[in-house]
């Protein structure tokens, strides 16, 4: 079986994307962090490392809550998307 990229996997899911971001990160803290646990915790690869800093895109978020609890610096301000937005599983 061909290796599926995370983009391929997320592309089959149903999302209703909000204009408001439900997870915010404090980039200043991320720049000083050497662990970057968020990169490995997020099963949707929403966190990416660029120029020593972390960027976050919420569109593929599966709302699992992993990033909320792994950050040792509490740089992740985590909430759920507003009701009616975010992931909708068809199977689950």
């Amino acid at each position: 079986m061909k290796q599926a990229s995370i983009e391929d996997k997320l592309a089959v899911n149903k999302y209703t994307i909000d204009k408001d971001v439900h997870i915010k990160i404090d980039g200043k803290i991320c720049k000083t962090c050497d662990k970057h646990y968020c990169l490995y915790a997020c099963p949707a690869h929403c966190f990416t490392l660029s120029n020593g800093g972390i960027t976050f895109s919420f569109e593929g978020c599966l709302e699992c809550g992993s990033c909320r609890i792994v950050c040792p610096n509490r740089a992740v301000d985590w909430t759920l998307p507003r009701a009616g937005f975010g992931i909708s599983y068809q199977y689950g």
């Binding site: 079986m1 599926a4 996997k9 089959v12 899911n13 599966l62 699992c64 809550g65 599983y89 199977y91």
Partner: peptide
Amino acid sequence: AGLIEGGRLVEYSAHL
């Protein structure tokens, strides 16, 4: 691999 060969991915999910 052989058992899942050709399966069409219809959903990817994650949870704690």
